[in-house]
Each structure stands twice: as structure tokens, then as C-alpha cells.
Nucleic acid binder design. Structure first.
Lengths: 193, 193, 193, 193
DNA sequence: CATGAATGAGGCTTCATTCAT
DNA sequence: CATGAATGAAGCCTCATTCAT
């Protein structure tokens, strides 16, 4: 953002953007629409953001930060690395379920970024958290002896897949037994046995 | 496509589109740019395509068909379902490596489609091929007894992750031993043990 | 027309144009559509016409000639000028009724021409025929002593109005008694009493 | 109109449109041309109008309203229906003379509308005013006992014809004696004698 | 600070006309 | 002669961004 003049207004813009990005996708949302939904003038947005691109980055970043924070809840209390990862997945599933809009924004931004080799600051953070845990797991022999980046990617993808599944089958989140079994399946993919 | 008037020109358009979609993404590529890159006039594009949308569909469909075809090579000769799946992943990895642009086009189209629940004819095909093999594996007890759609999503994601990894680490495709180990890891995630 | 190569083809083009002009208006009909409806290639039209404008002129002229011819049927046998005019109106009404497409083409061309002061060869012809008869009527004292162009315009308009009415109330053409009364009303407007 | 943001600018757009419609016809006038003539940017037009169609409707409506208003001046003070009609014609003639551009716009819009049977809100208004007066005249025996719609059409046409004549012979408007005689001729066409 | 009217580049699409086959 | 693919000017409209109020 350019100058954080009025935090309330800033938040209103962000909320409006999230809602619209969720409903229509980032590409099909105009600045005008965001302004209208936020109840402010089009020009005002440019007091908070240099241009369209930086608004998008801020909004995505905002969503990502929530995701990052929530995914960490309780993780430090876990001793085993696999359990840490499992808890992160679980956290992510519930966060996604409870924050479908923010989750959609992240996803919709993720791919174009991923397509080009563009290193993206957001995803790097999440990735590096996983990487650290996985490295620890590798060191402790908890995790399969394979290239760490391979493990990381695999793990990341599994979370993606699981989350996509949960989106279509939200009941799974209420079925603790089955959910646990699924999470175990995920983790077993990379666990050293 | 509207009418396949001049196959050569049609191909030129498609190639230009694939190249640009790869470089800039579908959304940021204009008809004008495609025409210029194809060395033809803007209006000519409309002899081959009704509108922008149908061009995109054709180009993506074209890429997808290649992917589908190539992914199936040799699969029928495999007896075990897990080996069928493994071969499909392997095929996909090599195809992606040798056709990075086509692969990128598919990916870049995949996301918006996946975000909305839109059923898409392309991805449905690929998904249903996997599903059939997985169903067979479930019946034969080769694959973990979990909801089939869960297995499918997980598998799909693993392929994604593996492919992303291979893109950044293409050397892996030359290291047959390591590659095989990785593929086994993938399949083990869903194999019934 | 440029070179009247094949009269059959020429006619096909004209018929197609008339039909389309009638259905969609001149402005909304493309050369492509005419070619397709005529069952020939777009380029062929340009063997018969220099450009769009000359095609339109030819088609309108063709329709107008029919109108001119038909409007004269039996007129020479009339002695009184008023009866000559009356017969011309009657002829026009029936011609319009039996050739709605050609009539529509004429009408749709008439106005833009009339708006600008453009002297138009077609309408001039029709106008001058009326004018000659009216001049004769003035000389004989059959028609009101008013500026001849005024009489001409008035008469022309009356025909227009009557024809518009007949289009919406075609039954009038079957009711000889009422029709005659109406025609008399028209002529009485300019008849010297 | 979309939103009457700046009345001055709105008026500039309208004036420019009227001028160009007058010079070139509605169909041959582009938004770009109007913008240029109005001294504003292309996009600005779309602040005042949703699209081309609504601009045309507004401009034509604007012209028509003037015509409607002016045609009614003094009409209510007339006792006889024929005089009411006569005054309406007279008003129309002078309005057309003093507002040739607005008059041309109306005419140029009138035709396509009239060709198709499309009921048009503007012309309906004018038509129904005449119809009401004529109905009254029929009831009072002032007007010939003929189908009312016939009378209406005839009258409408006469006005058209007279107006066309006056356009080419504006001097007539200064010659009160002759003008009156002509108007009488018009009205006599439908007057019950 | 906030506004929102104004801008104009740029995107999509149509279509009259040309010309190589 | 006939064809119809190719052209590109031109039209409509959107929208990120600016700037005077």
C-alpha cells in the first residue's frame, strides 16, 4: 500500500476485493467494482495502492498471512515432525473450510505465479516452513531419504489434493475417524518406514 | 475451430497462441498479438475461430489431446493397476518435459476451471481414466480402501507435485534409479499394503 | 452493374438482396449474406457491381422500375386527370400489396434520400409523371390553383399515407366500395370544386 | 441517459449528435465522431449513455419532445377540431423551419421504425394526440365519416408532404395568405362538407 | 484526504473489398 | 469467370489511471 491513511477504509477495500475475487475471479474484477463494493470512490483506492497489481498483491498477501498463522496453531507443541505436518494439513483444511473466500483468493493467485518460475514471497514462506520441518524429519530419520525438494513438493501437492477433496466433501471434516485415516495416508507417503 | 480452411495457417495460429499463452498467460494475450505472432492479419483469426473463447478452447483442447494420448502409451500392457498409474505419471513427466509450452497452457487453463466447480470436458476425461484404473485397483485390493474420489484427488495432486518438481529438476528424468524410487513413493501413498 | 455477365446470376443476386433488405433492412445486410443467399461466392458479386453502393442502387432501381411500370397500367386510357391520378394510386396500392418486399425496399431507400436534398433519379421519375398529369389538370382547371409543387408533394404524401394504411388494413383492398370512397377523398383534396 | 452528471457536457454531446445525425444520418455517425465533435473523449460518452442505442434514443427523444411541445402551442384555445389540427400543422411547419436539424433527426429515426411495424413510443404520442382530436371531430361531425385510422394516416401524410414542400420553399411561411390557403386545402381533405 | 468525471489506450469483432488461384 | 481466404480499417465498448475540485 502507498500510505495507510485510514485503516478502516483499507480494510473495507480488502474485504470488498476478497468478496469479488471470490465471486468472479481476480481477472474479472475491476477497480470500479471494488470501490463500489467498498463504498468509496474509485480514486480513493489509489491513495492506498499504487496500482491494480499492488492491490492484488496486498489482498493475496493478507489472505496468505491468515492462512500462515492459522496453519501454525498448535504445531510447536507436536514432538514428531510427521505430526507437525499432519497438524498443519488439518489446520489448513479447517481454515479453508471456514474461510472459503480467502482460500479461493490464494488458490486463484497461486497458479499463474506457479506457472512462470516467478519466485513468490508468499508461497516461499509457507514452503520454507514445511521445508524446515521436513528437514528436521529427514535428519531424525522420520522421513524418507529422498531429495528434500521432492518431498516438499509432494507434500504440498497432497495438501492441495486433500483440500480440493474436502471442498467437495465437507462432511469429511466432521468424521474424525475417516479424516484421521486420510491424514495418515497423506503422511505415510513421505514417512520413513 | 470454425472451419479448417488452411491447415497450415490454422497450425500457425495455434502455435503462436501456445507460445504466447506460455509466455504471458492466456488472460494477458490478445488476439492482435496472436495474429502478429502468426504473421497474419487480425481478421484472419476469425476465419478459423468464431471468437476469442473458441480459440482458447481449441488451443487448450489441442494441448490436452496430446497429453491424453501420450499419457496412455504402454499403459494397457501393464497388468497391475499401480503399474498402470505409475506409467501414466512417468509418461506425463516426460511429455511435460518435452512439451513445456503445451503443458503450461493446460495448467494455466486448469486453474480457473478448477476454482469454480465448472465441470470441464478436458479434465474430466483425464480424471475418469485415472478413476477407472483406481476403481479396478480398489476392486482387486491393490489400492487402499478409502473413498475413491479421495484417492483420485490425492493421486492427481501427486502427479502435479511430481511434475512441478521435475520441471525445476529436469535431471531427475535422466536418473532412472532415483526416478523409479520417486514414482514408487508416489504410488505407495495409495497402495494397499 | 459492372458487366452483365450472366443474367441468371445477376437475378439471383438481386432476389437475394431484395429478400434480405426486406427482412433485415438495407443497413443490416452484408454482402456476405447476399452472396450466401444467392448461392454464389462473395467475390462474384463484385463482378456484377463495383461496390456495395451500386448494388443497392441497382436493387432499388429494379424495384422502382417495377413500381413505375405497374403504376402506369391503364392510366393512359383515362381521360380526366383526376382519374389518371386515382388509378395510379390504386395501382400502387395493389402493387404494394402483391409485392411487399419490393415495396419495402423502395420505402427503406426513400427516406435517407429524401432527408438530404439529394436529387434521386428514381423518385424524380415518379414525381415527374405525377407532375405532368397534375400540370395538365391545372391547365384544364380540374385541379386547385395552387403551386404545382405543393400539389405534387401533397399528392405524393397522400399516396404514402394511404399505402401505409392499406398495409395494416389489407382488407380494404377487397372492399371496392370503401376503397373507392377513400380514393375519392384523396383526390378531392386537390380537385378544383 | 445513464446519469446526468454534467448537464453542460450532456448538452454538448447531444448537440454534436444532432448536428452529425443531420449531416450524415444516424447510421453513418460513429460514437468517435460524436465525441470529437463534442470536444470530449470517446470514453466520456459512456458516462452519459450505456451504449450507442441509448444515446440515439435519448437524442431522438429530446428532439421529439421539442416537437411535441411546440406543436401544441395554442391548440387548446381552438374550438373547432379542424382548427386544432390546422394549428398543429402550422406549428409543426414553423418548428421544422426553425429547427431543421432536430426535425431531420426525427425523420431519419422515423423511417426504420415505420418500416418494421415496431410500435414506437415517440411517434405513438404524436399519433395519439392527433387521433384524439380527430375522434372528437368525427363525433362532432366535423370530419368525414371514414375509418379513423385512415383519417389519421392521411392527415399525418399531409403534414409530411406539406413540411417537405415548405423545406424547399421556405418563402411560403412568410406568405400568410398562401400559407393559409394551403392549410385549408390540407384540412379540407378530411373535413366533412 | 476524498471524489468521480474524464481520459484514451487497447481489446474484441465485423465487413467491404481485393486478389491469387 | 468464379472463388473465398485474407486483409485491415473502423466501430463499439471497458477500464486502469489521473487530476481538478
Amino acid at each position: 500500500m502507498a500510505r495507510p491513511i485510514d485503516p478502516d477504509k483499507h480494510e473495507k477495500i480488502r474485504d470488498a476485493a476478497i468478496q469479488l475475487f471470490y465471486e468472479q475471479g481476480i481477472n474479472d474484477t475491476s477497480i470500479q467494482q471494488i470501490a463500489k463494493a467498498a463504498g468509496i470512490a474509485k480514486g480513493t483506492i489509489y491513495l492506498y495502492y499504487k496500482d491494480r497489481e499492488s492491490l492484488i498483491e496486498d489482498v493475496v498477501g493478507y489472505c496468505y498471512k491468515q492462512h500462515l498463522t492459522f496453519s501454525m496453531v498448535g504445531v510447536k507443541d507436536q514432538v514428531s515432525c510427521c505430526n507437525k505436518l499432519k497438524l498443519r494439513v488439518r489446520n489448513f483444511l479447517f481454515w479453508t473450510h471456514n474461510n472459503p473466500k480467502e482460500a479461493a483468493v490464494i488458490r486463484s493467485y497461486y497458479v499463474p505465479v506457479n506457472l512462470n518460475e516467478t519466485e513468490n514471497v508468499f508461497f516461499e514462506q509457507s514452503y520454507s516452513i514445511n521445508k524446515k520441518i521436513i528437514q528436521e524429519g529427514l535428519d531424525k530419520g522420520e522421513i524418507k531419504q529422498l531429495p528434500i525438494d521432492f518431498i516438499c513438493k509432494i507434500f504440498f501437492s497432497l495438501v492441495e489434493g486433500m483440500s480440493t477433496y474436502a471442498k467437495k466433501n465437507p462432511a469429511i471434516l466432521k468424521n474424525e475417524l475417516l479424516l484421521e485415516k486420510m491424514l495418515d495416508t497423506l503422511i505415510d507417503s513421505i514417512r520413513n518406514k
